[in-house]
Design a protein around this nucleic acid. Structure first.
Lengths: 245, 245
DNA sequence: CTCGGATTTATGTCTATACATATTCGAGAC
DNA sequence: GTCTCGAATATGTATAGACATAAATCCGAG
């Protein structure tokens, strides 16, 4: 039992509430505190760190919001059990991702037409107007990296009809001009059809990772994009830690 | 003595700092405030809500931590641009997922052996000891839902060698007894080989979604699991909103 | 006109206090 | 015994004030 008395230590220049937070986080990550264990009461930490209750409370509240801890009145604060299903998913910005590996990024537009909505999903996106339908390939150096099929709602983004998407990729333009406020991603696997395989320069029926993203701005659909990645060539990595960095 | 009896408005019983937070969040989600826009200064909100600066600060700090807002000293607080690549991924707990749809869940173990590590990745997981290698299928009603290949480190979980995994699925047992503190998920697509196709009752070479998860406890590897989902049969859905909820 | 330092300002952290609220626990009623 | 009610307690929210810190801005010296 070692009381970490605030003696002469190499103190980090961090704020105290941050230090309390990371201290507890460390105890959880090290397994010293497991799910269900009670962490010290606020008044105990208050004494231990020689600070006011507000400071301790701020630290613990942040941990609670991050999902590492559950607080119960009168009972205390307890380490939460890790949730299997929650993780942070990195769906990369393709340009940044490719250039980050030192490869040259290029987007090659192959289709760009206005057309009416087809089916209920597209109708919701179109909202009675027409859609801009795009298809193109993202290249890393000379190699096809991802096939992109995109619909843009001309209701949400009427200016898009006048943009030359051979100069700027649709994703980059949209983020710059119609930033989304909500997004939903679907991830699935499917076999590339003949046309997709040709554009990606892979064998037909190769298993591909399909990412479909829909975005909204203030509840109004902005775009729906499907990206196809050759399966063996790419991974999406998701991590779960104590969050925060 | 008695409460102020807020008759005039249908006030939510929420805390004030929460209300400030959701108010600003709503302005961002509605597009009224776009990326780069400055939100009111703390002292303005203080006046607007008739509360102290601490209360306003708590609300804005929470938004900053959630990534919706960036704060810059002396300059103010600004709406952050949405990051394309960060989303919350729902990797479901299979039992909960299946039973949630009203189907019967069953796990059928087909292989359970102890063996030595094979390759550097497995060696790191094993840490000089042997591994427990499992294979089994998760069923929804009578239909195969997912093929699971799992390695359990007997260093991190020696008791696992004595568990009867026909009675409890390895994932459920591990979460109960050796909860992880860190996890990494990889998502990719691949074609089912003959054996996998047989176990999943699908055509060989069908495109499947492959989820590989590794977990650690206090930096020590616990398990590595690969789950294979028939591609058309399943989606992983990831959402990004203002988080929280 | 430029550079560098002083000033101003908004956020960052912290305190001491107060009261509200949910939940547990024990004492007394039945 | 068990049920109910009130006391105890830990968290939840909020305040007013204080000082620290970073950065934009202004201003004077060169």
């Amino acid at each position: 039992m070692n009381k970490p008395a605030p003696v002469a230590e190499a103190e980090a220049p961090t704020a105290l509430h941050q230090r309390i937070r990371t201290d507890i986080e460390a105890k959880i990550l090290s397994g010293e505190l497991g799910p269900g264990d009670r962490i010290p009461f606020e008044h105990e930490l208050t004494e231990q760190y020689g600070c006011s209750r507000m400071t301790v409370s701020k630290a613990i509240s942040a941990l609670a919001e991050a999902g590492l801890i559950e607080r119960r009145r009168r009972a205390g604060s307890f380490v939460a059990r890790p949730r299997v299903h929650s993780a942070v998913l990195d769906i990369p910005d393709l340009r940044a991702e490719i250039e980050g590996r030192g490869q040259a990024y290029r987007f090659e537009l192959s289709v760009c037409v206005q057309r009416a909505a087809d089916g209920p999903d597209e109708a919701e996106l179109a909202g009675g107007r027409t859609l801009l339908a795009l298809r193109g390939v993202h290249f890393a150096d000379a190699r096809p990296f991802s096939l992109e099929d995109r619909l843009i709602s001309l209701r949400a983004a009427p200016e898009a009809a006048r943009i030359d998407f051979t100069q700027i990729s649709p994703g980059a333009w949209l983020l710059e001009h119609i930033p989304w406020t909500e997004a939903e991603n679907r991830i699935s696997a499917l076999a590339a059809d003949t046309e997709a395989a040709r554009l990606l320069a892979i064998a037909p029926r190769t298993a591909c990772l399909a990412v479909e993203r829909r975005t909204w701005r203030a509840g109004v659909g902005v775009t729906r994009v499907r990206q196809l990645f050759p399966g063996e060539a790419y991974d999406l990595v998701a991590r779960f830690g104590p969050s925060r960095g």
